[in-house]
Design a protein around this nucleic acid. Structure first.
Length: 738
DNA sequence: ATAGGGTTAG
């Protein structure tokens, strides 16, 4: 912005006397119309008072006008646009009027207007004073205008106002909040005024930018620590994710007998929420709130809801949520985000729908909370709607990079890789997360070369890959069975990038070793892992035993699985398949008996398909869908046409390869086939069918779907537990390797 | 007559 350079410090001071018609000062001050202002709550009342003031001639006094402007611009019941229009009618506004106006603008939604008025004030001949600058620096803080702030700083020096305590603190705050710590410290150190407030301004700057050690050092130096100083530290630790320290500081604050306030509690609740396991402290805060009659403070209630939801008590969160009369965007966001956080994706979608019905404008946080739910459920239509909304309302969104990244992730997980890539290519500014989303997107769709190519592009553009990047890279190798490449990435990850492998990284390597038949190497890696292998790793090893017909090894691997997850039937199913493959029918029968005797927690196979924005779900052999009759008729047609095309269902699989959908019987009624049948009858010929499945697709369904894509001339995109399959023209993108 | 430091959601 253009800044007017100030004339001489003691230039034209305007006469501040009241106009001739004004009554004596004391009378003006006591006038009943002005007393009324302090109780005024609505714009209408304000207008009445204003006309009263005009009738009595008081509007000719700067005093009355300044009171009116103050009320309209600064009071919470005021009206800034009324203040602006009133201000335009004032011929020679005095300092007080200018300052009220600027203060009102600085705390408004358009803080840059305060700077415009500041320039206007100077050019119209009124010199800013010590009351003006705090508001101006506040505006510079809000608009991140360190450059403008520096120019105004020069004005302060010219006018000799740098020793005023208020100007001093707001100046430090402006620099510190803009990350200009050198300048902030310069101002701070040059002054003899090392009072608690300016200390705190500096501390807050450091703490809010994550420089908690610097903040801590200063905090130890403050002569007197008040509640705001404590809050600055607690909030800094909470925002920096250092929740233990935030809570410890809170304890210390209580020991120091400093009375906490609402702000303190908001930070404490945030820390409790992030820890995910601090219900005790959270409940204590709740009683603190209720004891003080603050139960209807929306910020506090929202904080409580967030705390409950993240600590796993969705019920208590919902109770509080439903009791709120005037929910705001944060209330909803907290509930949606919490539901997504707890993997309650359908609830998240329901809450979002409720939010739209309640005419509450969603913001970037809303979308960042709801998009992962869309991605998980495969709710592509809602995802597309959000995409269009974001496009249209880009200007009001703050975290655009995160939003685009989340959209990439959603499109990739909903099966539309092309749109994901288009967004990626359009992004001028990318974050590490953006690259990660795109790399794992390509990886899960089996585009191994593209994923790996993107990885080298990202490093050559100066991005440093993290553990998530390598999950994507190693997954890409896993899906293509690229053992030696996988090995190279794995050791590069550890040696070049100092990323210590976690379970998913080990999982990819063990899967690669197992499928290659290198069981010794798999075993060595599993022994040397810092953590215990989880069920998924044992399962993938068991799967490898099946491919390589290693029956004895399979038995020992299965034993581990039985111990680790006694309620998980998949180990039994896999082992029985291995026995069946070797023709050991007696062992198969034994396993079946154990399966039936033990109480297994069956994970039902479930497939979903979205049609016209509605997600339809199908379980194995499901007959509850309202269009069940038509669906089963279509299933019959599919089977008939499959048979005609020469498809022979693998009867050994019918008997024994029930995979994770054990005991559910007839293969042709597997959930994915129901979903495909529904897709065929409810979407236009030739259009792509997208289905999502919670488990791995079984061998028989995989072969059937390949043929269905050819017979019905449909591209079928299926997401299973591990990856995407693109069925087209009789073949699948996974090349039967999955 | 007016003024400074803080505040939940990803």
């Amino acid at each position: 912005m253009k800044m007017v350079v100030l004339a001489s410090p003691v230039s034209t001071l305007q006469a501040l006397s009241f106009s001739d018609s004004s009554p004596p000062y004391k009378l003006v001050h006591d006038h009943p119309s002005l007393t009324l202002l302090s109780n005024c709550k609505t714009l209408q009342t304000l207008k009445q008072i204003h006309s009263q003031i005009i009738k009595t001639g008081l509007h000719n006094t700067h005093f009355a006008l300044s009171k009116l402007i103050e009320f309209c611009a600064v009071s919470p019941h005021g009206d800034l646009s009324y203040a602006l229009s009133l201000f335009k009618t004032i011929r020679n506004p005095n300092h007080v009027i200018w300052n009220h106006m600027i203060r009102g603008l600085s705390s408004s939604e358009s803080p840059f207007l305060a700077l415009e008025y500041y320039v206007h004030m100077i050019s119209s001949g009124t010199e800013p004073n010590e009351y003006t600058f705090p508001s101006i620096f506040k505006s510079c803080t809000k608009i991140r205008g360190a450059h403008e702030g520096k120019q105004v700083h020069a004005h302060v020096l010219k006018l000799g106002l740098e020793h005023n305590a208020f100007v001093h603190t707001s100046l430090i705050n402006m620099y510190a909040q803009n990350g200009e710590f050198v300048n902030a410290r310069l101002v701070f150190d040059k002054s003899s005024m090392r009072d608690a407030v300016s200390f705190t301004a500096l501390i807050t700057g450091y703490a809010s930018k994550g420089f908690l050690d610097e903040a801590r050092d200063l905090f130890d130096e403050i002569p007197v620590r008040d509640v705001v100083s404590w809050n600055a530290m607690i909030s800094g630790y909470a925002q920096g994710g250092r929740v233990e320290e935030a809570m410890a500081f809170f304890e210390e604050m209580r020991r120091a007998k400093v009375t906490p306030n609402v702000s303190t509690m908001l930070s404490v609740l945030s820390a409790c929420a992030q820890s995910g396991s601090s219900l005790q402290l959270g409940n204590w805060v709740r009683s603190w709130i209720e004891d003080r009659g603050l139960g209807s403070n929306l910020r506090l209630v929202n904080g409580l809801i967030d705390m409950y939801v993240k600590c796993g008590d969705l019920e208590e969160a919902s109770n509080l949520f439903e009791k709120i009369q005037d929910k705001n965007v944060v209330s909803w966001n907290v509930m949606i985000g919490g539901s997504t956080h707890m993997s309650c994706y359908k609830e998240a979608l329901g809450l979002f729908r409720l939010m739209m019905q309640s005419n509450i404008d969603p913001n970037d946080v809303t979308f960042l909370s709801i998009l992962p739910a869309c991605a998980n459920l495969g709710a592509l239509d809602l995802g597309k709607w959000i995409h269009a909304y974001v496009d249209k309302n880009m200007k009001s969104m703050k975290n655009t990079v995160a939003l685009w990244t989340s959209l990439i992730d959603m499109y990739a997980k909903c099966g539309d890789l092309a749109v994901a890539k288009r967004i990626f290519d359009c992004m001028n500014t990318k974050s590490l997360a953006t690259w990660n989303a795109m790399i794992s997107g390509f990886a899960m769709h089996g585009h191994t070369d593209t994923a790996l190519g993107l990885f080298s592009r990202m490093t050559s553009e100066g991005f440093v890959p993290d553990d998530i990047t390598f999950v994507g890279v190693l997954t890409a190798c896993k899906h293509a069975g690229l053992l030696s490449l996988g090995r190279r990435y794995f050791s590069s990850m550890i040696q070049d990038y100092k990323v210590s492998p976690k379970l998913p990284h080990y999982g990819c390597m063990i899967d690669l070793f197992g499928r290659a038949g290198l069981f010794d190497e798999a075993e060595t890696l599993m022994k040397n892992m810092e953590m215990k292998p989880d069920g998924a790793i044992w399962c993938s090893l068991l799967g490898a035993c099946r491919i390589h017909r290693r029956i004895e090894l399979a038995e020992s691997v299965a034993t581990h699985l039985f111990e680790l997850e006694p309620e998980n039937p998949s180990a039994y199913v896999l082992l029985s398949n291995i026995y069946a493959g070797a023709g050991r029918w007696e062992d198969v029968a034994k396993i079946r008996t154990r399966l039936n005797d033990n109480r297994m927690k069956k994970v039902p196979g479930c497939s979903s398909i979205e049609v016209d924005s509605v997600v339809h779900e199908f379980l194995v052999g499901d007959k509850v869908h309202p269009q069940s009759n038509e669906i089963y008729k279509m299933l019959d047609e599919i089977d008939m046409r499959l048979e005609k095309a020469g498809f022979v269902p693998d009867t050994s699989e019918v008997l024994y390869d029930m995979d994770e959908e054990w005991k559910e019987g007839v293969l042709s009624h597997h959930s994915e086939k129901l979903a495909i049948a529904f897709g065929l009858i409810s979407t236009k010929p030739g259009t792509t069918i997208r289905i999502m499945k919670n488990l791995r697709v079984c061998g028989n369904c995989h072969s059937a779907t390949k043929l269905i894509s050819k017979i019905f001339n449909r591209e079928i995109i299926a997401r299973d537990r591990n990856r995407f399959h693109h069925f087209k023209d009789g073949s699948c993108s996974c090349k039967d390797y999955w």
